[in-house]
């Protein structure tokens, strides 16, 4: 099984889990953004291009199950995955708490992006301060789950330093 197909299978499982399981496991009334955490993990490990592509696929898969405009999550996840890949190149160390930190920062940035674009395209539910409160709780939930998702992504992709460049040279 190639890395791409393993990653595709992981994204499929993540989307199903997000849609079918996590609505039952709300924390403070919110669900986490598993697809975004996967985009963060791939962006961190494989670079900006991979983060953007995986973010787009995971977000599009999740969008199919939502009533918000199709492409909204895909856009958010892709930008966040890309940004983490760019920022990662400036990091010299990878402390243990980094996945959780990226989960919070990525969750907040992605959430704000989602709200901003959502307001522009007329998504009523994101308006007001309640939207910011919701994404703050969701970012905390993302931070809790990020170490597990980063671990899964690392296991699925394996550690191969040549791969990071391969996304861009393909």
């Amino acid at each position: 099984m190639t890395r791409a197909s393993r990653l595709g299978a992981l994204i499929f499982v993540i989307v199903i889990t997000q849609v079918a399981v996590f609505p039952h496991l709300r924390l403070f009334g919110v669900v986490p953004d598993l697809g975004m955490i996967v985009a963060l993990a791939v962006g961190y490990q494989e670079g900006p291009e991979a983060g953007a592509i995986v973010g787009f696929v995971a977000g599009f898969g999740f969008d199919l199950f939502l009533s918000t405009p199709l492409g909204l999550d895909a856009l958010t996840y892709a930008i966040v995955g890309y940004a983490i890949g760019v920022l990662e190149s400036g990091l010299f160390r990878s402390p243990r708490w980094l996945p959780s930190f990226l989960g919070v920062v990525g969750g907040l940035a992605g959430g704000l992006l989602f709200i901003g674009i959502g307001v522009l395209v007329g998504v009523g539910a994101v308006k007001g301060t309640q939207g910011v409160v919701t994404i703050s709780y969701a970012a905390l939930y993302d931070a809790l789950l990020a170490p597990l998702v980063f671990f899964l992504v690392r296991r699925v992709l394996g550690r191969d330093d040549r791969v990071r460049d391969a996304w861009s040279s393909r």
């Binding site: 787009f56 856009l75 892709a78």
Partner: peptide, 20 residues
């Protein structure tokens, strides 16, 4: 990389526009 990001952004914006 920038080209890939641009293609993804344009695709997403097209999808959002069509869906809306």
């Amino acid at each position: 990389r920038r080209y890939v990001l641009l293609v993804i952004l344009l695709t997403c914006l097209t999808l959002i526009t069509l869906d809306t």
